[in-house]
Design a protein around this nucleic acid. Structure first.
Lengths: 147, 147
DNA sequence: ACAATAAAATACTAAAAACTCTTTTATTAT
DNA sequence: ATAATAAAAGAGTTTTTAGTATTTTATTGT
């Protein structure tokens, strides 16, 4: 809706990893792909990128996998979005103008700025670990069906 | 930001045409491309599509061009968005899940639904002729510089 | 030390979005 | 009628996004 497909996968994966690693567990790519309904090699690619940017941790080898420590887990959805989609969502103009500001606005500038700011607030104020509990309780989902 | 590039051009062009044709004028592709800062053949393509969908009118030949009659001009920004980008913005899930609803929500479902509904309201309640006056007065812009 | 495991790195293919070019068709003024 | 004009139609190309496959590197249990 608002994000690239890559970013949607990244968000789901980050939330999934945060949930699973809340008590020290690590999860492998296979489990992540299954847990969020994503193509395995594609999410692998995305996770490498997030890992490089410090938004998730990983260890190689047997018993290895991806995880997040408490600090990393407190990064927000906005951090993931910025890392993957850049800041176009937070700074772009609704009609695609490069110069668009309060002093030289596009016709929808003010209305859209409000909406965008609301979205930005939500993303910036939501840590990726925010949903651990509701996911554990089955109150929300990050894959289509089953478990 | 929220729309495809094609859709951004379409919105700017629709608004431009509505403004120019308010008093019966017709505008050619060259003038439109210049007026909204878009590649000429690309906006031509987009306009053909909008025309086919009845969101703008056109006549061929000398003195021809694009215009909108009063009724067409009362179509909303949402009509343009739907015509070009489909309804993914109005119905899609923030995390890309196909099945996402109040009864089986993704973690961000409720927050995002609010934001999406707000955006939807704005788009559905704004006719493409809404900005004619402020554009005439130079209070808002649909191209980068000059005029 | 070494075999097994799992992520990292790299290079690749496929599909979609963005953008261009050429030809055709309709209109109008002469 | 015809020449000029301007959009419609259709068939490209380029770039970006999405997704795959192959090899390398790090870790760990034996």
């Amino acid at each position: 809706m608002f994000f690239s497909k890559t970013c949607e996968y990244a968000l789901r994966a980050a939330v999934f990893i945060a949930q699973k690693s809340e008590h020290g567990r690590k999860v492998g790519i296979r489990e992540i792909a299954a847990g969020i309904d994503s193509p395995e090699p594609f999410i692998a690619k995305i996770l490498q990128d997030l890992s490089k940017q410090g938004l998730i941790q990983s260890v190689k080898g047997p018993t290895g996998g991806f995880y997040t420590d408490a600090e990393t887990r407190s990064n927000t959805l906005a951090d993931i979005v910025s890392a993957v989609d850049g800041n176009r969502l937070f700074t772009g103009c609704g009609l695609g103008l490069k110069e668009c500001s309060a002093s030289k606005p596009c016709p929808v500038h003010n209305e859209f700025a409000q909406i965008r700011d609301r979205l930005s607030d939500v993303l910036h104020s939501t840590p990726i670990s925010q949903f651990n509990e509701q996911l554990n309780l089955g109150l929300s989902y990050i894959k289509e069906r089953g478990f």
